[in-house]
Design a protein around this nucleic acid. Sequence first.
DNA 1: CATTTAGTTCAATTTTTATTGAACTAAATG
DNA 2: CATTTAGTTCAATAAAAATTGAACTAAATG
Lengths: 153, 153
Amino acid sequence: MDKEQLSYIEESGIIFEQMGMTRMAGRIFGFLAVSDKSEASFDEIRQALDASKGSISGTTKQLINAGLVQPVSLPGDRKTYYRLNKVAVGQLLRARIQLFNIFADLLSKGRELKKSEDDVSEWLKEVSAFYTWLGGEINAVIEKWENVKDDIM
Amino acid sequence: MDKEQLSYIEESGIIFEQMGMTRMAGRIFGFLAVSDKSEASFDEIRQALDASKGSISGTTKQLINAGLVQPVSLPGDRKTYYRLNKVAVGQLLRARIQLFNIFADLLSKGRELKKSEDDVSEWLKEVSAFYTWLGGEINAVIEKWENVKDDIM
DNA sequence: CATTTAGTTCAATTTTTATTGAACTAAATG
DNA sequence: CATTTAGTTCAATAAAAATTGAACTAAATG
């Protein structure tokens, strides 16, 4: 880990915090991203990030749960290794979009609870419908990506 | 405000917290969503939510800054009123998508900092390219919505 | 079966973030 | 121009979240 990589790891921590995860989750993600070896053991991570076992244990679970990290075990080795989960872009996006649907439901419920209809009702209705529609539209977007990505990358 | 509306306001607080804003921001949003009058004064909000002036002041600013709330002033009335900003769905979405681009940049930078290329590099490259592409694709998605929304709603 | 290793759990602590409340500013009113 | 009203600011406090660390479990090794 050189200086730039260490500062990258911290930056990743900040961004993950902005995305609603913990700073430590971002650090582990960042470490696994830039690390030379694509797999790292529990203790390699702990040492690289100078954190406690409890913190690494809890946070790797968080990341595994979020689908971003994959635990790997090898025969004849009692350690567990951790690596970035090379999940398909579609799956990643769908997970993120979930919050949109929660927001859509919130708006729609708000509209129902209003005592009278007004221009706010109309707006709640459209935004809610939009985000709900968007959830279904994602498949088409991902399909389009699959078709164009070879030209772009 | 009946019981259901008050519990809706709290629910909105929780969801806004999940979306990275404060609980109070969600409460104010929720209040403005279900309130009978589509505009509310500073003190009406403060009383309805039983919060301090400081908190209302800071949080209304947060919401105005995020583009979700609009301050309204009336001639001959020194109060400011607050209402949900009926911003277009596209604008709302674009604001949310910004985090995707930040994430894309993080991945791309991570790839650059790696000492060697491996399968993680490949993944970082694709995911980053995808989120970057997605940012540009949004306009097409919004345009499609404008065309289909009358059939759906 | 005693020992080492890998990781978990959770109460205590630290750190961060949200909220209050009191003193303040600025504008309007009498 | 003194007073009221509307809202702001910010230091102090409260509340919530992250992190530690020590005691623990479970599995593998000798």
